[in-house]
Write a protein that binds this DNA or RNA. Structure first.
Length: 422
DNA sequence: TCTGGGGTCCTAGGACCC
DNA sequence: TCTGGGGTCCTAGGACCC
């Protein structure tokens, strides 16, 4: 059996842990740059406030409904996430963190030990008591069915946070109640085709033949179909060893000169290098992107994209920045206003399995020693206390975060003061 | 004025080989 | 007049997830 534990309205719940006065009230969380609505409390959902729409369009509506707004605070959400995962991991031997607010749990063999339902409810209660974050737990014979079960657990209070689909009868009933477009793996595009073929529920889909599904929805559709039948065949990749690493941001204003764009791109490159070292990988290739504002159809559109392969794989900040600056220079063309840029590093290899080159001119050992010293100084004194000159000091490109809360759990200056009542 | 960020996987089509 | 067939590899773009 697989379990899926999912935090309810995760970002909103994180804010509420430190703002208990907001429980039961409508709250929304904005994406980076205060761009779109990305997390809504149940009260906000009940007001028919749509998810994913630009904030500036909804501002009057939110104000008139007295909705509390937060900029996203990833220092807080990331830390709360690891607290939740740590608690969950005390209850199962194997888990796969799937996203910031979800984890798959391995329950194989657990059903022989006693009542799995009691155990599931115990997990849900423990997480909420220890972290303040409400969660839903679904358990079934495949990951797709476990996700479905967790949605039932979230939707119907009678489940008290945990739902098991552990018999064929329950599976059939669940499939018949479940909208096909809510199935894990069915997105916008597939939903349209499903509608065309008259498939409304997960059950309708499961009643098609395997070959029909393969023909109309390719191997990915077939996998989902098998999972709905209770045959596990989707294994999410471990998040620990990524195959590529991406850092990108939109800018609050557009940037139209090469000099202005260099600085954010250098910082994105530095961020990728740091993430590489965290997962003990080196990259073999680096891509640079920059895009004009796609939402503004009145101005000329352009996507700058340049790629390079490295002679020797690297995780060194200076080296990756230097390649990125080269690529940006080569791909540059005047006359565009860039709204977004990013760095992708890929072709990742473990840092201790590097294929060296006969023609390499860099002293790799010295390079690594220097990087280690810089990392340890920054670790002790704060990110970017020592940085590469190209990363600069401009704040032109920094994110807009007008409604950000404190870093309650990761910054000493933001710790709450608790006073006893007289 | 204003529209997120970070991933994985699959497929079609082109380049290239013999 | 008339120009093959089979294979691999790479890349861009799209679909999907949260």
């Amino acid at each position: 059996m697989f379990g899926l534990i999912d935090c309810n309205n995760f970002y909103v719940s994180c804010e509420r842990v430190f703002r208990p006065d907001l429980r039961g009230k409508p709250v929304v969380i904005l994406s980076n740059n205060d761009g779109c609505l990305i997390s809504l409390s149940n009260e906000a959902k009940a007001m028919q406030i749509p998810m994913g729409l630009p904030f500036y369009q909804l501002k009057p509506l939110l104000a008139s409904n007295r909705v509390t707004v937060f900029s996203s605070n990833y220092a807080l959400y990331g830390d709360m996430s690891s607290r939740v995962m740590n608690i969950v991991n005390q209850f199962v031997p194997i888990s796969e963190i799937y996203s910031i607010d979800e984890s798959f749990l391995d329950f194989h063999g657990f059903d022989k030990l006693g009542d799995l339902s009691d155990y599931a409810h115990h997990i849900v209660r423990s997480v909420e008591r220890s972290t303040g974050i409400p969660v839903s737990l679904g358990i079934a014979s495949t990951r797709t069915l476990a996700k479905m079960a967790s949605k039932f657990a979230k939707k119907y209070p009678a489940y008290k946070g945990a739902c098991l689909i552990d018999t064929d009868e329950k599976r059939e009933k669940a499939l018949k109640l479940f909208d096909i477009s809510d199935v894990w793996g069915v997105g916008r595009r597939m939903r349209v085709s499903m509608e065309y073929y008259g498939i409304k529920t997960a059950w309708d889909f499961s009643q098609k033949s395997a070959s029909w599904v393969r023909d109309h929805f390719t191997v990915t559709g077939l996998r989902t179909w098998k999972e709905l039948h209770g045959h596990p065949c989707i294994t999410p990749d471990s998040i620990e060893q990524k195959k590529s690493i991406y850092t990108s941001r939109s800018f609050p204003k557009t940037l139209s000169s090469l000099e202005l764009l260099k600085e954010p791109v250098a910082n994105f490159a530095a961020s990728c290098a740091s993430k590489l070292r965290q997962q003990h990988s080196c990259c073999q290739a680096i891509d640079v992107f920059a895009q004009t504002n796609r939402c503004n159809q009145n101005e000329p559109q352009y996507t700058l994209r340049r790629s390079t392969n490295l002679v020797v794989p690297t995780q060194n900040t200076a080296e990756i920045i230097s390649s990125a600056m080269d690529l940006l220079q080569k791909g540059w063309s005047d006359g565009y206003r860039f709204k977004r840029a990013g760095i992708l590093v890929w072709g990742l290899v473990p840092e201790d399995e590097i294929q060296t080159s006969f023609f390499d001119t860099v002293d790799r050992l010295a390079q690594r020693r220097l990087q280690n010293v810089v990392d340890s100084i920054n670790h002790k004194n704060g990110d970017n206390k020592i940085k590469i000159a190209a990363q600069g000091f401009s704040t032109e490109w920094h994110l807009r975060k007008e409604y950000i809360s404190h870093q309650y759990t990761t910054n000493f200056d933001d710790l709450l003061t608790v006073r006893a009542k007289d």
